[in-house]
């Protein structure tokens, strides 16, 4: 009766705005699919048990742990990674703020951190530092001590709010 189940699964999705069709192993998670099959090495695999946030990507408009979603589940999904968000200039201000504030050191957490931060920023308003810290509380950074990241996100929130008023 197990012929209902497949050990390889066909999926069709869009990744960074481009259509992708693939046959993926049943147990493969999204982040391995993106990195190994599509060469999108921006998001990283680090803990692979859903804790560190280095694999955070955007799926159907919200931030998602790439290691806790199977590629097989992505059929029909719209997936964005740091590469696509860069190419479309969707987060240029945030990236610039990270560089200006040195809100990254080794950079391994940064692609996931950016996706998480952008989710908060795109909700609008000017979040408090505590709200920024809380929203990023699932993204581990061993280098910075977080303060520079909070500064960078806060500065972008304020700048975007300012633009909205003008």
């Amino acid at each position: 009766m197990t012929e209902m189940f497949r050990d390889k699964v066909d999926v069709a999705l869009t990744v960074n705005g481009e259509p992708v069709e693939a046959r993926v192993p049943a147990g493969q998670h999204m982040i391995d699919f993106l990195r190994l099959d599509l060469g999108l090495t921006g998001a990283h695999a680090s803990c692979e048990h859903g804790v560190c946030g280095a694999c955070t990507i955007r799926v159907d408009g919200v931030s998602v742990r790439g290691c806790l979603m199977l590629a097989a589940q992505a059929d029909g999904a719209e997936v964005w990674t740091v590469e696509g968000l860069t190419d479309t200039a969707a987060i240029t201000d945030l990236q610039d703020a990270f560089v200006a504030r040195n809100a990254l050191q080794c950079g391994f957490c940064t692609p996931g951190m950016l996706v998480a931060a952008e989710e908060l920023l795109s909700a609008g308003g000017t979040p408090s530092r505590a709200e920024i810290r809380e929203h990023l509380s699932g993204n581990y950074c061993r280098c910075t001590g977080y303060e520079a990241i909070v500064d960078a996100v806060e500065s972008v929130a304020k700048a975007r709010a300012g633009k909205g008023d003008a």
């Binding site: 197990t2 209902m4 189940f5 497949r6 050990d7 699964v9 192993p25 049943a26 147990g27 493969q28 998670h29 391995d32 692979e48 199977l70 097989a72 059929d75």
Partner: peptide
């Protein structure tokens, strides 16, 4: 580590 699933069905 990498998961091993015997099969998947939607």
């Amino acid at each position: 580590m990498k998961a091993s699933a015997a099969g998947y069905a939607r």
